[in-house]
């Protein structure tokens, strides 16, 4: 067994009824692997991790791993995670969402969690489609592409999830792909370590639903597409708008410091109790 597989087994739930729900060639396993490697490197205790998800293919991710896991309602993962974090700030709360999950039905929760700077890590797996329900177009389906509910073409414009997170106030925002596996490992580790609301957008492929309808080939071909269209943030600064037209940036988009909600609330508690009479 390869070293990398052994490590994953250390964190899988062996009493879970496998096999998993993902299609052969899916990128979700790569994201899960990156998260596990980061958790292992950072030596977090299993008991201290709460992994929260919403609904969709990404929503099934926590069930396979041996942490405190919470599979919530569609789009609401961040709200549940907020409650967990506020009730027990010492826990490491990791939220996994899909593109539809985080930016359509959960869009409001996403921008407000970022604005509050609640101390969580949000991993958003962006496959440009609603995969589990049969390939309907999502807020990140590019303009002009096809989906089961856009049989002619998609006439809506896509969200840029990472830039949305930057604007909403997230203190750490990174974007990676499942092709750039080493970068993804690093980004996820950085987001875990970052105090405050950290976001990693992971560009992945849904060859079953999105790729097939748009003649993008199999999983390997779609990962090659990621390789060809990704540009490092550092490199993009020197590129013209024309050169960047059909490209997307990967790397760290933002890394900044802002007051953290849980720490601020601890100060509020002190303020609230300052003038109360002591027990007698």
């Amino acid at each position: 067994m390869a070293e990398i597989t052994k490590l994953v087994h250390k964190y899988l739930r062996h009493d879970k009824k496998f096999p998993h729900v993902w299609c052969p060639g899916c990128g979700n396993g790569i994201v899960l692997g990156a998260m596990i490697r980061a958790i292992d490197r950072l030596a977090y205790r299993k008991d201290d991790i709460v992994m929260v998800s919403g609904i969709g293919c990404s929503g099934r991710l926590p069930v396979y791993v041996d942490f405190n896991t919470l599979h919530t309602t569609h789009g609401r993962a961040l709200t549940f995670a907020t409650g967990v974090k506020l009730a027990k700030p010492e826990l490491k709360v990791i939220v996994v969402m899909g593109d539809g999950d985080a930016t359509a039905i959960g869009g409001n929760h996403f921008i407000h969690a970022a604005r509050r700077n609640i101390n969580l890590t949000a991993i958003i797996i962006n496959n440009n489609i609603y995969g589990m329900t049969g390939g309907q177009y999502s807020p990140t389906t590019p303009y002009g592409m096809k989906a089961s509910t856009a049989p002619y073409r998609n006439i809506e414009h896509a969200f840029n999830i990472a830039e949305l997170a930057v604007t909403a106030g997230a203190v750490f925002v990174g974007r990676g792909t499942v092709y750039h596996a080493r970068l993804l490992d690093k980004l996820i580790e950085k987001a875990f370590v970052k105090r405050g609301f950290g976001v990693v957008e992971v560009i992945t492929h849904c060859h079953t639903q999105y790729g097939r309808r748009n003649r993008m080939g199999d999983a390997v071909a779609m990962m090659k597409w990621q390789k060809e269209h990704a540009v490092r943030v550092e490199k993009s600064a020197d590129m013209s708008e024309e050169e960047l037209r059909d490209k997307f940036t990967i790397g760290v988009l933002v890394d900044r410091e802002l007051p953290i909600y849980t720490e601020q609330y601890a100060l509020v508690r002190e303020q609230a109790t300052e003038n109360l009479p002591r027990s007698h």
């Binding site: 609401r76 709200t79 549940f80 995670a81 907020t82 967990v84 009730a87 409001n108 929760h109 407000h112």
Partner: peptide, 20 residues
């Protein structure tokens, strides 16, 4: 905490309850 809507409010309440 004042949440962004009532959906979020009950979500946070459930999360907090799961954390004890």
């Amino acid at each position: 905490i004042q949440m962004e809507d009532e959906i979020a409010s009950l979500g946070a309440v459930i999360g907090a309850s799961l954390a004890g």
